[in-house]
């Protein structure tokens, strides 16, 4: 029992002592004669078997490469042609075959045929000799003294200021990345203006009666490129007029149960276009903010803090929907310069 415990807890006593080496990265190594795998040098039969296995794996790589090349040249590839969808998987299979052959062959080779003995190498001490360290510090100090910097305060201060001012150099260049503009003004404006018709995604104006109750339509301002304007996308919703609750100040913003909201989420700007026609919920697919379309897009759930801005609409002489003007508050996410007074208007 005591022998076995000594065996179990055998410390590094069979490790030959090797003292500090000259070259940090090249400390001498000593074998412990514990092999990682049986030495096949004296077992030609098993060695031969191992060699065959390793070679077979290496040759598998050739098969993979041939398959890859043949696939690349000959397999159907053009979209829509028969079996074109097998092209990429075939490339993958053959490349995997080739790489697995080489990779596992190399590992198997190392694990069977190469001599692989456990080896001990001493670590060098990382910290320098205290004497060297002191000398280095001394040299640094001396050099600093010799430069005259500690004594000449004008020099010291001017070099600090001069070198520090260099940090300003890139700043004007950074400002070249964008135009100078009044951020709040830019962010408050969208493509909508008074009299602008509500166009659908194909550029056709939307008429009263196009939507049935429970219908929704993505609408865009009637300006060039209106559909691609990132701040102007809006959603026209039709519900039963009695379901729609608006504050008195917004009574004229809706038309016979039709109401328009900005779809740009007031949280992080995703298009809020999931509309549940029975619950009147508008739901953002990015972070699940939920708005009540029947109640001025009030926030019901999720991280958004503000209602979706509402666009006032009316109907022109030809029966087409038109905007009464731009949104009365900036659409989309919050920003520092956004005046709290915008949101005070809600429900006023």
């Amino acid at each position: 029992m005591s022998d076995s415990i000594r065996d179990r807890l055998k410390p590094a006593e069979d490790t030959p002592e090797v003292h500090h080496a000259e070259h940090p990265a090249g400390d001498p190594v000593v074998s412990t004669h514990h092999a990682y795998h049986p030495d096949l040098r004296n077992d030609p039969k098993r060695a031969k078997r191992a060699e065959i296995a390793v070679s077979a794996l290496f040759l598998l790589a050739v098969v993979g490469v041939i398959g890859f090349v043949v696939t690349y040249i000959a397999a159907p590839f053009n979209f829509g042609t028969a079996n074109y969808q097998t092209f990429t998987p075939l490339l993958g299979i053959f490349m995997t075959l080739a790489l697995t052959g080489i990779g596992s062959g190399a590992v198997l080779w190392a694990k069977t045929l190469m001599v692989d003995e456990e080896t001990v190498q001493e670590r060098h001490h990382l910290a320098s000799d205290p004497k060297d360290r002191a000398e280095t510090v001394e040299i640094l100090k001396e050099g600093f003294e010799e430069s005259g910097l500690p004594r000449r305060s004008l020099l010291r201060n001017s070099i600090l200021l001069g070198a520090g001012s260099l940090a300003v150099l890139p700043v004007p260049l950074l400002f070249g990345l964008g135009r100078f503009q009044h951020k709040e003004a830019v962010l408050s404006k969208t493509g909508w203006k008074a009299g602008s018709r509500l166009l659908d995604e194909l550029g056709r104006p939307v008429k009263l009666g196009d939507l049935e109750v429970g219908g929704v339509k993505s609408v865009f301002p009637d300006v060039p490129g209106g559909r691609r304007m990132a701040d102007s996308a809006a959603l026209l919703i039709r519900m039963l007029p009695e379901d729609l609750h608006t504050s008195p100040s917004r009574k004229d913003w809706v038309q016979e149960g039709h109401i328009v909201y900005s779809v740009i989420c007031t949280h992080l700007g995703c298009p809020v276009k999931l509309y549940e026609q029975q619950t009147h919920h508008l739901f953002c697919p990015c972070h699940q903010s939920t708005f009540d379309a029947a109640n001025e897009a009030k926030v019901l759930f999720g991280p958004a803090a503000r209602n979706l801005p509402q666009l006032a609409i009316s109907v022109d002489a030809d029966g087409y929907f038109v905007a009464q003007g731009d949104f009365t508050e900036p659409v989309g996410p919050s920003f520092w310069e956004r005046k709290p007074s915008y949101s005070d208007k809600v429900g006023a």
Binding site: D200, V206, K207, G209, D210, L211, E212, V213, G214, G215, V216, K217, Y275, E276, Q277, Q278, T279
Partner: peptide, 13 residues
């Protein structure tokens, strides 16, 4: 028909 919570897309729309 816009079943349940799905919006309705009329032929005019």
């Amino acid at each position: 028909s816009g079943p349940e919570n799905m919006p309705r897309f009329s032929d005019n729309q």
